[in-house]
Nucleic acid binder design. Sequence first.
DNA 1: GCGGAACGTTCTGTATACAACACACAGCAC
DNA 2: GTGCTGTGTGTTGTATACAGAACGTTCCGC
Lengths: 230, 230
Amino acid sequence: MTKQAPTLVLDEEPPHPAEHKLLSRTVADWLAERIIMGEEAPGARLTELDVARRAGVSRSPVREALRILEGEGLVDIAPRYGAHVAHIGIADVEELYECRMLLEPVCMRLAVVALTDGDIDELEDVRRRMESASTSPRLFLSLNVQYFRTLALHCPNDTLRELVELTWKKAVRYWSIFARIPHYAEVSIMQHTTLHDAVRAGDGAAAERADRLILERALHEIVATFEHVA
Amino acid sequence: MTKQAPTLVLDEEPPHPAEHKLLSRTVADWLAERIIMGEEAPGARLTELDVARRAGVSRSPVREALRILEGEGLVDIAPRYGAHVAHIGIADVEELYECRMLLEPVCMRLAVVALTDGDIDELEDVRRRMESASTSPRLFLSLNVQYFRTLALHCPNDTLRELVELTWKKAVRYWSIFARIPHYAEVSIMQHTTLHDAVRAGDGAAAERADRLILERALHEIVATFEHVA
DNA sequence: GCGGAACGTTCTGTATACAACACACAGCAC
DNA sequence: GTGCTGTGTGTTGTATACAGAACGTTCCGC
């Protein structure tokens, strides 16, 4: 219902827009970054006390951070045992993309037909920055997500949007692989053009098709690269 | 939570199957039950200390329980403000069912083709108990979920299964409405027959169609009843 | 009477303390 | 040597203590 600007926070805003970042969220982001970048090995045990010491905080926010990360699929938690960095496997990627293909194209279709001219301008801007960031994989991926996130914000089905965003949070786990795909940005930009045209035309069906194609290609690329790497 | 089937990684699994129920989980279940049964009014504020006192525990497990319930969509949490019982609206139901229709039928299709004879026997048993429970809405709904859950357990795509289970956790919020639908069980059983036939025949495509029909009808019924009640 | 600021209450967020449990290893019996 | 048991260490789960923020109230100025 209430649209949020460029912040990535989900929803919610009773009294104050709550930009006051909680420690637990900060720790979660910090640890997520390390996991995504591969600085925490898959399968490695994450002791609350150890994480707390390294982050320079007490166990309380760390505990909450680990639960958050569990929800985002970055760690596994076993009761009375502790947290592990979640394993990364090619089967998981395929599963995740199968799910994304079910949800995301529909989300895009619904969002595109709800866009205003101002929204399209905003997307144009992100798109431009993507084009000029094709040499930095990390930045490109970040802008890519921002494009989709901005678009999804206009999906009238909030439940669907939240599910899609959940899949994105899980997908972020494989960025390290994307970053290794040669010429990923250039090819991605090309395919992205089809989606962007649909956005400008307000053509929901075309956007749905375009997103499905993008996902199919991304899965194909990542599987090939994964096999090449591992 | 995770199925943990054929992981080839060494991955030491939780030493004990962890039936040891944590206090936080107990509180979460207790509070969820109260919310579902309408004993906690939608929109009502849930103060950590108040819940803790009523549950007879300290704030720590309550805090975790509220986060769990937030993930399941039963409460909303705003930073530095607290938790509210999530509102229940007809728009949310429609959104949720739109999502379920995208995910669940595919999940059922994949599961049905993976069933063994033993699995089918187990489902037959649940089915029989459903037939004899048509007079108790609560029990019927519970068995209904058990049927689908048992089925979904065999979906080879764990990520999809988890997403589907997430939508179920959210859907449980509307049981109080289902329970008011006249003759719900009888009609439901009838439609359920189509699905069950597909299960026995191992016909994935038929199961997918059947589940889609079931969801469409359920949405229709719940919308009608909601308008009648509210 | 009305607006606004200072105050006080209440709650969350974080830190710390304590208890229960799990695992590893050493020592003993056989 | 093998298997069991008791102890020790480390970690999680829960309770409690403390600090700061948000909200309501009251009191003052006008």
